[in-house]
Write a protein that binds this DNA or RNA. Structure first.
Lengths: 105, 105
DNA sequence: CTTATGTGCAACTCCAGAGTTGCACATGAG
DNA sequence: CTCATGTGCAACTCTGGAGTTGCACATAAG
């Protein structure tokens, strides 16, 4: 679980991919449609969609001759849960160390 | 808020930075100490710590002649909250679109 | 049928950033 | 004081990945 996090973050690290995700968050779209709305070529869009699909943030479905993509919000929620868990563990450890330091002077 | 997310994820996208964070999650440490425990040079560690500090995932404090770093779990929880919010919005929109399609279909 | 539109594959450019080495300087430890 | 240890700054290499162009192919639209 935690092993796969860097991959997901790598996917979320790119501005263009965020724009794509934000757009797909409004509703499904094809690569060509996205290329018309964003200032990048269709081929670049496809590469980004491949990356997003590889980490489960996007799903694709063939519709006629088109390939329609849609954002997977549930995947984002999963990542959020992992992060929250890790962050709280850090906080607990840090406060425990602080208390020990204060006690020992 | 969402504008800063790509920066944070870019910081979290690197394996070495993740190892550094995991180590700091166990307790504070200096750059030299981290360099001894990880298979990278101290200078590389410092660069990573600068990146992590820039996005609030790590804080530094001068202790004598050393500079001690510690992980900021709260920052991670903030990011988690943002992600959860965004993901749930996507899910709501998608289900609404699906229902409309079924009704009209 | 003919054409416009959507995809897939491949080769290429380009640059950010991860990591290195080297050196100079400061300061706690002995 | 003397020396080991911790830092800071700078220049350099090198690889991954973002974006591009070009071409071939498939298929809905007219």
């Amino acid at each position: 679980m935690i092993e796969s996090l860097p991959k997901v973050f790598s996917a979320l690290a790119d501005d263009t991919r965020w724009r794509i995700l934000a757009r797909l968050g409004e509703g499904p779209a094809s690569a060509s449609a996205l290329a018309r709305e964003l200032p990048v070529s269709r081929q670049a869009i496809v590469k980004h969609l491949d990356v997003l699909r590889a980490v489960g943030l996007v799903e694709s479905q063939e519709r006629g001759r088109e390939v329609v993509y849609r954002a997977v919000g549930g995947r984002l929620s999963d990542v959020a849960r992992d992060l929250e868990r890790i962050g709280s563990v850090w906080e607990q450890r840090l406060s425990r160390i602080k208390h020990m330091a204060e006690r020992d002077g």
